[in-house]
Design a protein around this nucleic acid. Structure first.
Length: 414
RNA sequence: GUGGGCGUAGCUCAACGGUUAGAGCGCUGGACUGUGACUCCGGAGGCUGGGGGUUCGAAACCCCUCGUCCACCCCA
């Protein structure tokens, strides 16, 4: 083996790339229908941005970031997620002077994790952020948009789970309450949960260790501990989800891995993905913009895992493509004549590929078939003499000599 | 970071520690001198991931290493 790609960094080859393109195009189409515009941010940022936004004690920051020094000694990091860079750009370019900014982005993210099905070191996300809107209706609308997106691209069997993590008013009190509860069942908690009992007790609710599941069975629920504002926000989100015809399962144990979330959080899962079953997730982050030096700006956002969506679609859906025509010119005269013909056909939007190989017609027909041709157009001495071409339908084997015009007409039908 | 499975032809996989490592698909040539996909016949293609060891003899057994997949952790 010579040089290979970096571990966890994948090539997206033709075939797969068609699925990717369709997913991205559908996202653009649907999101823009809700008033979103694209934002493109760099793949690297100053490390500090992620330390301050994601949280210093999160797994991402502690062990998963691609951090390096540039030649001037600045600490840079390949973005592990998309929200922080968007917020940085939002503040830097004073986008908050607009009443609300609806932004979406796509691109690669980087996390140094052990690769696994649906999890890679470079992975693509499609994300969207509603910035400057505190209304719970914004949460519900974004979720509704997301569900439409999945329905449109043909991802079935998705489940939406939502939760509210409260805000600066009620979360600290809940944290204390939970801590006190956990202290009482200390003996049955796993090592991990014990370690982060003080810093991040919520994680225990999410733990899959059987001991922790058992021990936290009767733990106080965050949903019951929300302050008035958060409770009413959560209620309205649920009401509007219902009005949008969306089923959401309330999961008070769902905790997110990033520190900046407040109030609504959610996760969309799909079966058939193995252990990494989330296809999209996100939530509200009302404090982050201010935290990073901007004005108080309530926001809601989410990210979709491209590879995971592609994995699902690969199993379930076939994508239709424009029919391909392969053009075979026999002899130098025909080769010369093909230039003008193909140029004209392509200007009509036809998808035509000329076979330049020197082999026998037989081998060239075989190549056309292998290339997936719906039609093969042959131009040799006979056709040349008449100023026509032979069009062969590769599915029915029917073949006909036609004028250039008629041939173009035929192959455009598919 | 931890645990397990797997690395043999372009792909999917065979081969008890014992001749020259095989098959299907694909590729290529021919039967059919201008016709693919079906059929038949031929051909090319391998440092068995890499390194070390055990053995008369290793693709196989042992150790190391790299890669890959799945899972844990965590997440999109």
């Amino acid at each position: 083996m010579s040089i290979t790609a970096i571990r966890g960094f994948n090539d997206i080859l033709p075939g797969d790339s068609d699925i990717w393109r369709r997913v991205e195009e559908e996202a653009y189409r649907i999101f823009s229908g809700y008033g979103f515009s694209e934002i493109k941010t760099p793949v690297a940022e100053k490390t500090e941005l992620f330390l301050r936004s994601i949280g210093e004690t999160t797994d991402i920051v502690e062990k998963e970031m691609y951090t390096f020094q540039d030649r001037h000694g600045d600490s840079l990091t390949l973005r592990p997620e998309g929200t922080a860079p968007v917020v940085r750009a939002y503040i830097e370019h004073k986008l908050y002077t607009a009443p609300v900014s609806k932004l979406y982005y796509t691109g690669p993210m980087f996390r140094y994790e052990r690769p696994q099905k649906g999890r890679y070191r470079q992975f693509y996300q499609i994300g969207a952020e509603v910035m400057g809107d505190e209304s719970p209706r914004a949460d519900a609308e974004a979720l509704s948009m997301l569900m439409s997106f999945f329905a449109n691209i043909g991802v079935a069997g998705v489940e939406l789970q939502i939760n509210s993590l409260g805000d600066a008013n009620c979360r600290p009190a809940y944290k204390e309450k939970l801590k006190a509860y956990l202290a009482g069942v200390k003996g049955s908690l796993c090592e991990n949960c014990l370690r982060r009992m003080d810093t991040n007790p919520l994680r225990a609710l999410d733990c899959k260790a059987s001991g922790c599941i058992e021990a936290t069975k009767d733990a106080p629920s965050i949903v019951d501990s929300l302050c008035e504002g958060c409770a009413s926000h959560f209620g309205t989100v649920r009401k509007y989800l219902k009005l949008s015809g969306i089923d959401a399962r309330i999961n008070p144990r769902m905790v997110r891995g990033l520190d900046y979330y407040t109030k609504t959080t959610f996760e969309i899962t799909s079966t058939g993905l193995g252990s990494q079953n989330a296809v999209a997730a996100g939530g509200r982050y009302d404090g982050l913009v201010k935290e990073l030096g901007g004005p108080e700006t309530p926001c809601f956002g989410f990210a979709i895992g491209m590879e995971r969506v592609a994995l699902i679609l690969k199993e379930t859906s076939a994508i239709s493509k424009k029919p391909l025509t392969v053009f075979i010119a026999l002899g130098e005269k025909a080769e010369e004549a093909s230039v003008a013909i193909l140029k004209a056909w392509r200007e009509k939007g036809l998808k035509v590929m000329e076979d330049f190989s020197p082999g026998s017609l037989k081998s060239r027909m075989k190549r056309a078939d292998r290339a997936g041709a719906r039609y093969t157009v042959i131009m040799g001495d006979d056709e040349l003499a008449k100023g026509e071409v032979s069009v062969k339908d590769m599915r029915t084997s029917a073949q006909e000599m036609l004028s250039f015009e008629a041939a173009a007409q035929r192959i455009s039908l598919g």
